[in-house]
Nucleic acid binder design. Structure first.
Length: 110
DNA sequence: CAGTCGGCGTCAC
DNA sequence: CGTGACGCCGACT
């Protein structure tokens, strides 16, 4: 880890972000805002989205389990990643209605 | 370094 | 369910 990270602590927040993301249970989802909150990014929902979009293609992290606060898929239906997300969620047994999931049921943490 | 633009958002009305 | 306003940050000029 670069010395600059030890000074700014930026790596810590980023690592926490990845850690939280990785800890989202299969079959459950969370929102950008919550994820940011849990990772100590405060109101960095959009930043969370940015980081998710910058993850490597072959990542094993469950980026697809992150939706907007209304439980809707925020990615364009016609976009490759959007379909990928849709497919993965379905594969985990999550019921999707009108591109939206029931946060009361699948939301994490409870 | 300062100004500006835009984003996988969120909340209130 | 649509609209507008707000807020935070990275990227670019």
């Amino acid at each position: 880890m670069p010395p600059s990270d030890l000074q700014t602590g930026s790596a810590t927040v980023r690592e926490t972000f990845l850690l939280v993301l990785a800890s989202i249970p299969e079959g459950r989802v969370t929102s950008y805002g919550r994820l940011a909150q849990l990772a100590g990014m405060g109101r960095g929902a959009r930043l969370a989205g940015r980081w998710l979009g910058q993850l490597p293609e072959g990542t094993t992290l469950p980026w697809h389990r992150v939706l907007n606060s209304q439980g809707q898929l925020s990615l364009p239906p016609d976009h490759p990643a959007g379909q990928e997300q849709y497919q993965r969620l379905l594969a985990e047994g999550i019921i999707i209605t009108h591109r939206r999931v029931d946060m009361k049921r699948y939301g994490w943490p409870d």
